[in-house]
Design a protein around this nucleic acid. Sequence first.
DNA 1: GATAAGGCTTCCAGTCACTGGAAGGTCAAG
DNA 2: CTTGACCTTCCAGTGACTGGAAGCCTTATC
Lengths: 130, 130
Amino acid sequence: MNISDVAERSGLPPKTIRYYEDIGLIRPDRGANGYRSFSEKHLHKLTFLGRARALGFSIEECRALLALYEDETRASADVKRIAKEHLAQIETKISELQSMHGTLSHLVHCCAGDDRPDCPILEDLGGTLR
Amino acid sequence: MNISDVAERSGLPPKTIRYYEDIGLIRPDRGANGYRSFSEKHLHKLTFLGRARALGFSIEECRALLALYEDETRASADVKRIAKEHLAQIETKISELQSMHGTLSHLVHCCAGDDRPDCPILEDLGGTLR
DNA sequence: GATAAGGCTTCCAGTCACTGGAAGGTCAAG
DNA sequence: CTTGACCTTCCAGTGACTGGAAGCCTTATC
C-alpha cells in the first residue's frame, strides 16, 4: 500500500503518518522508487495510534502502549497503569474546564449584552469588584 | 515598578510579561537604563490578562477583551458575544473529554491489571474486538 | 574603588503534535 | 509525450509560553 491508501484506511492524514515515521512510531518499508510501502500490520499499528490519540493519549503514551501491544509477554497491569494515569489527567482537565465554565457562565448570565458599556464580565476580569 | 515587582503583584512570570509586550498586549515605559517601567495601569492590564487567560480565553480573545476594557464607549453585547463563544468552546471540549473518559474508564474497569498479557484496553485500541 | 550577587536586557531554541507549502521525482492514462 | 495525480524531502509556522546563554546595570559589602 502507498501512503494515501493507508491514510484512507487508517483515517490518519498522510502528513501525520510521515510524522509518525519521523519520530519512530512506525517503520514502513520502501519500494525501489523510494515510496513508502505499508503492510496490513503497519495499517493495524496506525489504526491503533489513531484510536489511542483519539482517546487523548500523548505521543509518548502511544509509544509505550504500542510497545506493550507488540509485546506478547506484557503484563496488563502496565497497560492499566498508563490508562489510569491518563484517566486522572482527563479528570483534572474536566474539572478545570468545569470550573472555568461555572465562573464564565455566571458572568455571561449577569451581562446585559446590550449597547451600554457596563459589563460585569469586564468588571470581573479587571478586578474592579474584588 | 520593575518587571519582577509587577510579576509578583500580577501573578504572571516575568517571561510571560515580556512575551505579552512582544506580541503587543502591553507597552510598558522604559527607564534611562533600558529597564521596563510599569505603572499601576499596566499592572491592572496584566492582572486582567492573567484572569482572562485563567478563564481559558486565547491570546487573541484577550486582546479583543482588553480593547473593549479600555474602550469606554463599548457595547457590553460585544463582550458577551466573545464570552459566549468561548463558553461554547469550553462546552465542546468538556463533552469531548467526557466522551474519552467514558470510553477509557470502561476499558480500565474491564482490565484485570495483573501479570497476564490479556488486556481489553489494547484489544480495543487494536480493533481486535470490532 | 573593587567585587560579588542579583536583576535586568536581548536573542535563540525548544515544547507538542502536527500542518502547509515549495521544489522536485514518479507513475498511469490518454 | 504530456498531463495530472501521486510521491519524496525539507523548511517554516502554529499557541503560549519557557529555558538558557551572554552581557549590561544596580546595590551592598569590603
